[in-house]
Write a protein that binds this DNA or RNA. Structure first.
Lengths: 229, 229
DNA sequence: GTGGTATTCAAGTGAATACTTGAATACGAC
DNA sequence: GTCGTATTCAAGTATTCACTTGAATACCAC
């Protein structure tokens, strides 16, 4: 028949990829890195874990091949090792949203009630962008905007939105987007804008899905005055 | 800031999906079920584990939502709960093949050297099928053929191939396919055919990928004489 | 060289995991 | 009802895992 030990080893190798995503904290890390590379301390902050623990999770992702590193002086920047990883992470979320019973509750507990929040799909947004009747708003932290964003989008991190509302053009619908379907930033932005009477909706998914779909992207751009290159 | 406990729970839920694929034996189960539904004892046989252990793995897949069951008398048939699971499994293999260093060795240890074996992609096969210059050969176990196959394919399980070689039409190239890229059946079939001087190549991927790509499929068909419905 | 910071390593603890064995349950045949 | 088979459950063991704490390493600035 077939070579059982060799087959087991081969499938253990496949499984090692899934296994490393099988921890909520590592999943959060992958979700963050899907927005662009990050040094260890920022990742730790983002997932709410100690630096030592975060470092160990990163080592595991590294050993499994899902991430790569780049040294810059004393800091080590981690990034996803390729777009296949982005697709894998998307596939995990898709299966969870279709087949995990409690997911809706958990999502609502984290994101709040979305019933009142309209959203646009990617195609709807591209159509309206072509028609020129929308303002696209990137509400992620600025470094994520800098590492890649939807062309023409304005960067206003959600924390600064309340103070910069006047800068936004009037008379057009504002479409806010962030890290993905399960990211709170765009929801928060839409609620803030609506409270001020501005017409706002969110993009259903986030930047990684936009880029993965092969739609045009832009990088670099707005640099805070005084920030070094 | 953000609601840390709720976020952790949400990402733990995503991770639970990946976690359940993070065992080589469960990965093998998913790979088998990608060919169609199966009762517990056959799955156990297929993955080389005890029935009790296999049952427990199946319970885990069930709790995670990746599979569903159907009772038929005393037997319980398991199947994948949807095509999203097929895509997830494909994404896992893709990441592994791109980013897991040892995968090539492990695959070669299980499959043998493929250097001498030509293969066709799905598109190449559809073109040649349209041109009518190939015979398509399904070398999986017959029950898998019955639960779905490439239209016009001939079913000859690899174990019976040596004895049924004369039945195959001559003068056209034979394209053998099986469960997927990491399945030995088609390789074995191509080697057997070549040894007898018949022109044979394998389809690069397998039936699940063909079906997932939206290409036409056919089900039912050849029933052994005497076998019940 | 010294001092400071970013990251990794090592050791320890409590919980979860994979597999085994043997018993319990659920259905079909009679 | 009894018997036989398919599947699941329960208990036990050796291993692996996530996180903590505190120390070690690697680079930069001086």
């Amino acid at each position: 028949m077939s070579d059982r030990p060799a087959k087991d080893k081969l499938f253990d190798a496949f499984a090692s990829v899934a296994k490393v995503l099988g921890s909520g904290r590592r999943a959060e890390i992958v979700d963050v890195l899907a927005q662009g590379e990050r040094p260890v301390d920022e990742i730790a902050e983002e997932i709410g874990q100690s630096i030592a623990n975060t470092s160990q999770h990163l080592q595991q992702l590294l050993r499994a091949g899902l991430v790569r590193t780049r040294r810059e002086g004393t800091r080590i920047h981690y990034r996803l090792s390729g777009t296949a990883v982005t697709r894998l992470w998307a596939a995990v979320r898709e299966v969870a949203s279709e087949h995990v019973a409690e997911l809706d509750e958990l999502a609502e507990a984290y994101l709040g009630d979305r019933a009142a929040l309209d959203s646009l799909t990617r195609t709807e947004l591209t159509n309206r962008m072509a028609a020129g009747d929308v303002v696209v708003l990137d509400v992620r932290p600025e470094r994520e905007f800098r590492s890649g964003h939807i062309p023409g989008a304005v960067s206003v991190p959600v924390g600064e939105l309340a103070g910069r509302m006047k800068d936004l053009p009037h008379g057009r619908i504002i479409v806010a987007y962030c890290r993905g379907q399960y990211c709170v930033f765009a929801d928060e932005a839409v609620r803030t804008l609506r409270e001020q009477g501005m017409p706002a909706v969110r993009l259903e998914e986030g930047y990684p899905e936009w880029a993965e779909a092969g739609l045009p992207v832009e990088a670099g751009a707005p640099r805070k005055s005084g920030a070094p290159g």
